[in-house]
Design a protein around this nucleic acid. Structure first.
Lengths: 163, 163
DNA sequence: TTACGTGCAAAGGCTTTGCAGTCGG
DNA sequence: CCGACTGCAAAGCCTTTGCACGTAA
């Protein structure tokens, strides 16, 4: 549940600047705005979320630029992409993403993070057994959160999909 | 690596028929064709894959019907959806999907399955700790397969994304 | 017979791409 | 200055939806 501090965000922003310089790419206002917004987010915003938040702050960033900047951030290893099966992607600062995986409530969509260091060790071993070089992993547990599991017990065996 | 036997596929097909009867839905040729094709597949075909394979066998199934049938199969718990971040979904008979997770090579796309019973126990406990009711999980490990890790060692620290 | 399925084609939602104008280094 | 960026709008890709006709039970 660690909400990133102003300092964390600033440090990440500097790393991004460094990454851009390394690749001889211009440091533009839009790129910094996108990165800063994402680094400061406590949740897992989608591209549209980011666009809206930037607009709300008076920063106008075109869709193409937004996606291209996200791509840069992912390439640089500063941001991780998540796909929770909603039909679009969500983004999270890699520093925040490391060390946790996700519990997703199938009914209300609530997202809870949980520590994963133990899984990671096991997954590295599993990869090794297949002679794979471990790079990263994605773990999601779908279920019902405390509130929703109490709400209606009838759906526990069938699909709760609220059509 | 278990490639489904003719018998498995037939048994699953019967379960599908039963599921349709339970819901008072007609058992049509197209529905059976889609289900049979998927139950008999040894890999994780996409909707388009299935469409092509059916066409190759002389079975013509419209796109809408194909997707609606897949939805029925997923609802019935007979099929599991996978999303490996390719921009589309893949499908797998649930019976085959239970008991394994996926190792994905980031360079060549190779997919390897590995047993997951131990992870599942750990994930159930993790869910429990957050008062979540465990329903299912998704675990993916991304990395480099034996062949690709030997091919070029220069990419091990940066992103190998073959643009 | 009749409710539901089917195929076609169009619409949808997210993301990527092409291009003329603009700006960082 | 020059190469790369930016925004807009159009295109792309997979998936869903609307509708007239067909079919399982």
């Amino acid at each position: 549940m660690a909400s990133p501090s102003r300092d964390d965000a600033t440090a990440l922003l500097d790393r991004f600047r460094g990454h851009l310089r390394d690749r001889r790419l211009p440091v533009t206002r839009q790129r910094l705005a996108v990165a800063e917004q994402l680094f400061g987010a406590a949740d897992h915003p989608s591209a549209l979320d980011l666009s809206r938040r930037l607009r709300a702050r008076g920063e106008r960033v075109g869709t193409a630029t937004l996606y291209r900047t996200l791509e840069l951030l992912v390439e640089g290893g500063l941001v991780r992409v998540h796909d929770f099966g909603e039909g679009f992607k969500r983004y999270e600062a890699a520093a925040a993403a490391a060390g946790h995986d996700h519990l997703i409530c199938e009914r209300c969509g609530r997202l809870v993070e949980f520590a994963n260091d133990r899984f990671e060790r096991m997954l590295r071993m599993a990869a090794d057994a297949e002679r794979f070089l471990y790079r990263r992993h994605r773990v999601q547990v779908q279920g019902l959160c405390a509130e929703c599991r109490g709400r209606d017990l009838g759906v526990l065996t069938s699909d709760p999909a609220p059509r």
